[in-house]
Design a protein around this nucleic acid. Sequence first.
RNA 1: GGAGAAGUGGCCGAGCGGUUUAAGGCGCACGCCUGGAAAGCGUGUUUCCCCGAGAGGGGAUCAAGGGUUCGAAUCCCUUCUUCUCCGCCA
Length: 426
Amino acid sequence: MLTLQYLRDNKDEALKRLAKRGNPELEELVSKALSLDAESRKIRAEAEALQAEVNKASKDIGARMREGDQAGAEALKQRVSEIKNEAQEQKAELMRKDSDLATVLYQIPNVPGPDVPAGRTPEENEEVFRSGNLPEPGRTPLPHWELASKYALIDFETGVKITGAGFPLYTGKGAKLQRALINFFLDRADIAGYHEVIPPLVVNEDSGIGTGQLPDKEGQMYYMGEDELYLIPTAEVPITNIFRDVILNEEDLPIKKCGYTPCFRREAGSYGKDVRGLNRLHQFDKVEIVEITKPEESYAVLQAMTEHVKGLLDALELPYRILRLCGGDMGFAAATTYDFEVFSAGQDRWLEVSSVSNFEDFQSNRLKCRFRRKGEKQTALVHTLNGSALALPRIVAALLENNQDETGIKIPPALVPYTGFDRIEA
RNA sequence: GGAGAAGUGGCCGAGCGGUUUAAGGCGCACGCCUGGAAAGCGUGUUUCCCCGAGAGGGGAUCAAGGGUUCGAAUCCCUUCUUCUCCGCCA
């Protein structure tokens, strides 16, 4: 969430930046937060003054009892009871204000960064880069679900039998291709300096709140009520939460982590061509990169992360484009997001395969992840960033569709050392 | 899953209703001392929040949350975690 300090000191700037999200309710929420904040602080000052009196009187009682002044002690006890009665009401009021304030703050999304275009819909996203050639018009390539079946790579029907829709069964070379991509992505991340972790795939409520999935978006995660735990929707959640309640030293930064995990998403309400084949799954594999930086470095790091992702798509020789998301299309916690989309020849459409975001201090404020500059006593919030590098299913879809010919599918050379085969045939 | 023990500051470790403002030690920072260093001595050293221009004052914080009390690290309840033993198991 946004820090109150930022809202207090930069209300106009915050409103200006929030306006890019195209949601007129935000201005009101900000005003409400600020007025609740002012009320809360006023009551807090009063309540704390009373508490100070109670503390002082209690100490006096102790002193009198040691001196044997029972009567004096009793009189003070009486007095303290009165003050406590008075304070009771204020404490209750304070708790109400603070909880109202938290509710409002949780509803205010991050302020879009300087380069983010204003807009509400995906059409208003800005294409900033394009690479590779789109297939010739006139060709009629097969969609990946037909290729998957033709070459026995993925068995969607059996996945349905075992679990349900959105849980595919990869088989043979289809399974090997998954494994190859995971290792390829992890090796590339390692070379780029990301430290590999294998995190838990199940997280608690605090972690969900830390990265912003909770409260509010619990419907997107699978929840195990018996144990009050959530299946991770992305490795971002466990990896970023490594740094929850942590104070780092300046020289520790930047911290670069990567990890492969399956991801689980309920995707309630999705339908049609969006969920066909591998387009949108309840379980999929992804390699994620996460970086923790000093505030002044986060935008340079965002750039470097996008370069890393570009490198992966270049190596796989897939046509792709990069979009700078407009304010309204960005996630709740993001300040700036670049989406990567590969072209799917068999479906004649773009598919999102990566989303790289700078959260500035929005996540770290919730996480309470701070750092201390050398020689300074004060702590400051770090900036957090993350990106998919990469999500597998749509990469697989594009690889199959874009590299198909009459008799098979060609594996891009960069991947051959990982697959052990350079072609998939019947 | 069952039985028992325990969670105190950056770390070790005392305290088990009121001079605790959390002893003592280690570590760290600064100062004195020194040609320089070590040792020694002195000062400081959790984090968050509120009031204040500042100096400073105040509140919270002894795993977490609730309770008892004028007063809780200390007593009670719940939860979490760690350790030991038993059971089960890849």
